[in-house]
Design a binder for these strands. Structure first.
Length: 334
DNA sequence: CATCCACGGGAAAAACAGGGTC
DNA sequence: GACCCTGTTTTTCCCGTGGATG
């Protein structure tokens, strides 16, 4: 059934992006000056999750490497590298500039100094989930340096400008924006159809069935592909050469669950306790949540820290927080 | 309108990490 | 190996803001 498992994976970047022609063209036009050794404008890409923002950025990186010899491309996921040090370290590492960096021997701003001294080919830095960056001075510094240009990715456009300090806000307001909208059902179907062509045996799945998956995924390609993967695995294990409707129906909750499970895995112990408490109540008000948490855990953290944990969990789309003040209610997503 | 909670920014403190020294 | 040093990361403390409530 499965002939190439790689293409079904989430991180897979197709050699040819469907349905993002406009966005890709626009991005490549904006980056074009790099071929002449000039610095392109900063680009802001925004839109909901699972609509191809990261994919387009990475695809553009591949293109750049192929077409322009003298260009560097660095991708940083700010969700993983959210502190100034880590994000900066990640970029320098990519550029091969971290050889002798040790915490103890490295003065405070040595890393920025390294960045400043970089004299290789012009470099495009992609900062994915940039709203997760705690210290935005990195953006400011990158903006200052002519060798570097930036692609900033976030779910909501305002989230970028909100975190950035004023000296940068004014400059970023003039930068290029690319908005990504949720995929239509047809688009999602043909994205999945392409993966099916590359990764599954012929006639493994009917168009009608893909349509059913696309409908369940509601415009989110990440979820759609997760469902498809789950269905294909089921059929593969059963030794079938076609995916049945029944397998798809079971794969729909399973695929969603897989996406959720991946997020849960990244939570630390205290956050999982919070998650379970909210799960047990379905809806819970803060004071009750804090009390239950203190009861269930050996050495409870302060309320303030718990609030930090909870905001992270909200960002992960695991928890929904309704209300901004006294009216706050926590519940699970879905 | 006073009071009560809850949130979340910011600063400061505490904990941690990876190196060196004796 | 116990100990120190320095920069990083996590946690806590303080507090202004704001909706809810009586």
């Amino acid at each position: 059934m499965i002939t190439d498992a790689r293409v079904l994976r989430q991180e897979f970047v197709p050699g040819d992006l469907e349905h993002r022609d406009a966005e890709t063209t626009y991005l490549s036009e904006t980056l074009a000056p790099i071929a002449d050794g000039e610095t392109p404008e900063t680009v802001i890409m925004h839109g909901p999750s699972g609509v191809g923002k990261t994919c387009v950025a990475k695809y553009m990186g591949d293109q750049l490497r192929q077409k322009v010899l003298d260009a560097e491309f660095q991708y940083v996921n700010c969700w993983q590298h959210y502190s100034r040090y880590r994000a900066l370290h990640r970029i320098l590492e990519g550029l091969g500039q971290t050889l002798d960096i040790h915490r103890q021997s490295t003065p405070r701003d040595e890393l920025f100094e390294r960045l400043r001294q970089y004299d290789g080919p012009p470099c495009v830095v992609v900062l994915d989930e940039v709203d997760q960056l705690e210290d935005t001075s990195l953006l400011y510094h990158l903006h200052e340096l002519s060798q570097f240009s930036m692609i900033l990715i976030a779910n909501r456009e305002e989230a970028i400008l909100r975190t950035v300090d004023e000296r940068l806000t004014s400059r970023l307001t003039g930068s290029e924006r690319i908005r990504f909208d949720a995929y239509h059902e047809d688009e999602l179907v043909s994205i999945m159809a392409a993966r099916v062509r590359w990764g599954l045996v012929e006639n493994a799945i009917q168009e009608e069935q893909l349509r059913r998956i696309a409908d369940a995924a509601a415009g989110d390609a990440r979820i759609g592909l997760s469902i498809l993967r789950s269905a294909a695995r089921r059929a593969d294990r059963a030794g079938d050469d076609r995916i049945t409707d029944g397998q798809i129906e079971t794969a729909i909750p399973a695929g969603r669950e897989e996406v959720r499970q991946k997020s849960i895995e990244t939570l630390i112990h205290h956050q999982r306790v919070l998650y379970r408490i909210i799960e047990d109540h379905s809806e819970i008000e803060p004071s009750e949540l804090y009390d239950a948490y203190r009861e269930r855990v050996e050495e409870p953290k302060s309320d303030r820290t718990v609030r930090n944990y909870l905001t992270k969990m909200v960002h992960y789309n695991l928890v929904i927080a309704d209300g901004t003040s006294r009216d706050r209610i926590y519940r699970l997503r879905e």
